[in-house]
C-alpha cells in the first residue's frame, strides 16, 4: 500500500484500514443479535398491507377524534 508515500501517510492509511476492519469484524458479532427496530419496521409494512392501512399510520382514524 502506497510504497512511495511518506511514512506518516502510510501509518495513517494503515490506521484507517485497521479501524475499518475492526468495526467490520464487530458487525459479524453484532448481527447475531435480533434487529428489533428492523423487525418492527418489517412488521408494520406487512400489517399495513394485510389490513390495507394507509402507509405509516395505525388504524386509528384521525378524523373521529381519539376518545377511547
Amino acid at each position: 500500500m502506497l510504497p512511495s508515500a511518506p511514512i506518516p501517510l502510510r501509518i495513517g492509511a494503515a490506521a484507517l484500514l485497521l479501524g475499518t476492519i475492526l468495526v467490520s469484524a464487530g458487525c459479524v458479532t453484532i448481527n447475531i443479535y435480533f434487529p428489533a427496530a428492523a423487525a418492527e419496521k418489517a412488521a408494520d409494512r406487512i400489517i399495513e398491507g394485510v389490513w390495507q392501512l394507509p402507509k405509516g399510520q395505525g388504524a386509528q382514524a384521525p378524523a373521529d377524534g381519539d376518545t377511547r
Partner: peptide, 12 residues
C-alpha cells in the same frame, strides 16, 4: 493516526 482509525470505524 488515531483520528484516521476513528474515521475508518465510522465508515465501517
Amino acid at each position: 493516526a488515531i483520528h484516521l482509525a476513528l474515521i475508518g470505524a465510522l465508515l465501517g
